[in-house]
């Protein structure tokens, strides 16, 4: 039996920074359009900020039927409670069946708090989404600590909520139909921000460094010690790339957290990926997209990473990597192209 309302809504939180929607918003809108292909479904983009008319225009033709805009000076910066109050009010009024967020700093904080406020379920850092005919959302998440995925549902509470890792869904080139722009109430009776922002320091290391690198060399727990890290960096820079890490080197304090590639860190799209001492957990691998060549160096021939890459080298990386660096530095032999 179809127990859906005649009209069902699926919303995407259209996170913007300085007026620019973040990439994951376009990824989610395109995916949501596919999910909501059945008649009776409407895709909404919820845009919150100040002076965001231009931002709303950027969201047009990207998959949404409606762009819901809350525009108010108090929404200039994300300060927790100010956005939360506006999203909560909009959700209570329009009662979307599904609300999706990018798994960004802002998206995770806002979604977690909103789900708790509405006493509903939230699936975190999803890598896939399915929607049944009955309007039930199934979220696929990388199961922590193993090479497994989990299917999560929220059977009784509404809305069904999920945060989705950036870089998972493709953004198609086609132009979607025009969206209707609706105004939602963005006014607040008092300052609902959880804190005052007194200073902003833009990232010195461009956040796009890893994301935009054409070569990424990732060091894993197999690196063994902080002293060995320069080897990873040397290989990366020799190949014109950037060094990244899995979680254990960050936990061990060998490298800073901003180098972490994977679900909890950055999503990279290099032509070439080389994993050194990386065991191959999905938590890391979901952050590596669209490579032409994925190479792994690991001393364990049964390591999971070899099931997820193109070329495998088995042995002690402390021998292989220096040999590789030497071979790459060697001048080309005459006659080679």
């Amino acid at each position: 039996m179809d127990n859906r309302k005649p009209e069902s809504r699926i919303w995407v939180f259209a996170e913007q920074r300085s007026g620019q929607p973040v990439d994951v918003v376009f990824e989610l809108l395109a995916k949501t359009r596919l999910l909501a292909a059945a008649p009776g479904w409407k895709v909404g983009a919820l845009l919150i900020g100040h002076n965001v008319t231009g931002t709303a225009a950027l969201l047009d033709n990207r998959g949404a039927d409606e762009i819901l805009v809350a525009d108010d000076p108090a929404l200039e910066d994300y300060r927790g409670g100010n956005y939360l109050a506006v999203v909560e009010r909009a959700v209570r009024k329009h009662k979307p069946d599904v609300v999706l967020f990018g798994a960004t700093s802002m998206g995770v904080d806002l979604a977690a708090r909103l789900a708790a406020r509405l006493r509903t379920g939230l699936s975190g850092h999803c890598v896939d989404l399915e929607l049944s005919d009955r309007g039930e959302l199934t979220a696929v998440i990388p199961w922590p600590g193993g090479d497994f995925l989990g299917r999560i549902v929220c059977p009784r509470r509404r809305p069904q909520m999920a945060t989705v890792s950036p870089g998972i869904f493709d953004v198609p080139r086609n132009v979607f139909p025009k969206a209707k722009i609706l105004t939602v109430d963005g006014t607040l009776d008092s300052d609902r921000g959880f804190y005052r922002i007194v200073e902003k320091t833009p990232e010195e290391r461009k956040p796009g460094d890893l994301e935009n690198a054409r070569v990424v060399v990732v060091g894993g727990y197999g690196i063994g010690a902080r002293e060995n890290w320069p080897l990873v960096k040397e290989l990366a820079s020799l190949l014109g790339g950037v060094a990244g890490a899995t979680r254990p080197p960050v936990d061990e304090g060998w490298v800073t957290a901003d180098l972490m590639v994977g679900q909890s860190g950055r999503t990279v799209h290099p032509r070439l990926y080389i994993g050194v001492g990386v065991s191959g957990h999905l938590h890391h691998l979901v952050g590596v997209k669209g490579t032409e060549l994925k190479v792994a160096v690991n001393q364990d021939p049964r390591a999971a990473i070899f099931d997820h890459c193109d070329l495998g080298l088995v042995g002690d990386y402390r021998e292989i990597v220096p040999a590789l660096i030497a071979a790459l530095k060697k001048p080309r032999a005459a006659g080679d192209l």
Binding site: S123, D147, L149, D307, H308, C309
Partner: peptide, 26 residues
């Protein structure tokens, strides 16, 4: 509010081509 429907192993489609030989040869 959430339920785990199932855990599953993703398809392992792409077993790597494994190089052989000494570290230097590989």
């Amino acid at each position: 509010p959430t339920r785990v429907l199932e855990l599953f192993e993703p398809e392992r489609k792409n077993r790597a081509e494994m190089l052989s030989g000494t570290p230097a040869e590989q």
